[in-house]
Design a protein around this nucleic acid. Structure first.
Length: 134
DNA sequence: GTGATGACGATAT
DNA sequence: TATATCGCCATCA
């Protein structure tokens, strides 16, 4: 690679920061985090970053990050248990009720202040005519 | 520098 | 709805 893209470490840090914005009781998908981080970040990169959390797993709410299927990709980490403790509900299949807990993304102000991006409105799950003015 | 892997996503069948 | 295949990008061997 001819392009030492930003400090590799910062790449992960940025992902961690984005994950930290997910409020309790809500969940975000790997793709969502990748979109918020932007900068060519991908859902898989988020997965790698979370896998490399290590000791940071205590400060980063990685448990609130799930796959777009609404299912838990991890196993043995008690992710589902932790989510349930925060008030997240699951359906009969064991998938998170995205309709009720899907995080809409960080506030535009915060995103802009930190150089992140906001999540595009999701058709089918549109909350209301909230901020569609821009 | 190349190839394989992965806590994924989207599309096609 | 579930399974199969391809694409995506960074990390590791």
């Amino acid at each position: 690679m001819s392009t030492p893209p930003r400090d590799e470490r910062e790449y992960f840090e940025r992902i961690y920061t984005a994950v930290e914005q997910v409020p309790p009781g809500q969940v975000a998908t790997y793709g969502d985090i990748a979109t918020i981080v932007g900068d060519g970040c991908d859902a898989r990169i988020v997965g790698h970053a979370l896998g490399a959390l290590g000791a940071r797993s205590a400060t980063v709410p990685w448990q609130r990050v799930i796959n777009r299927n609404g299912g838990i990709s991890t196993s043995g980490y008690g992710q589902r248990e932790a989510l349930a403790a925060e008030g997240v509900t699951f359906d009969e299949r064991g998938h998170v009720r995205m309709d009720a807990h899907h995080w809409q993304g960080p506030s535009e102000q915060w995103a802009r202040a930190h150089g992140f991006q906001t999540l595009p409105a999701r058709p089918g799950s549109v909350p209301d005519a909230q901020l569609r003015l821009f």
